[in-house]
Amino acid sequence: MMFGLAALAIVVAAIMVLYRGIKGPRVYDRLLAINSMGTKTVILIALIGYMYERPHFLDIALVYALINFIGTIAFLKYRETGRLD
C-alpha cells in the first residue's frame, strides 16, 4: 500500500513534468523535462519491483539510470557544435 501510494505520487509528478515537456516554449525546457521524466522512470521501476516483491528490479533501475543520459549528451553536442561526429 505504501509503495502504491508512493508510485501514485511519482505518476502525478510525471504528469506535471510532462506538461512542461509538451508545453515548454523552448527546446531546453523540454530536454530538462524529459531528463527528469527518466529519473522518475528509474524510481518507478524500483517501486514496481517492490510491489511485485521482486527486489532485483533495483539492478534494472540502476542500468536505466545509466542509459538515461545518452540522448541528453547527443542533444547537447548537437546544440554546441551543430553536428554529432
Partner: peptide
C-alpha cells in the same frame, strides 16, 4: 513543428512505454 522537440518528446514516449512493459513483467 520543431523536429528537435519532437525527438525529445519521443524519448519520453519510450520511457513511458518501458514502464508499461515493466508492469506487464516483460523486463
Amino acid at each position: 513543428k520543431d523536429l528537435l522537440s519532437s525527438t525529445v518528446v519521443l524519448g519520453a514516449y519510450s520511457l513511458v512505454m518501458a514502464i508499461i512493459w515493466m508492469d506487464l513483467n516483460a523486463v
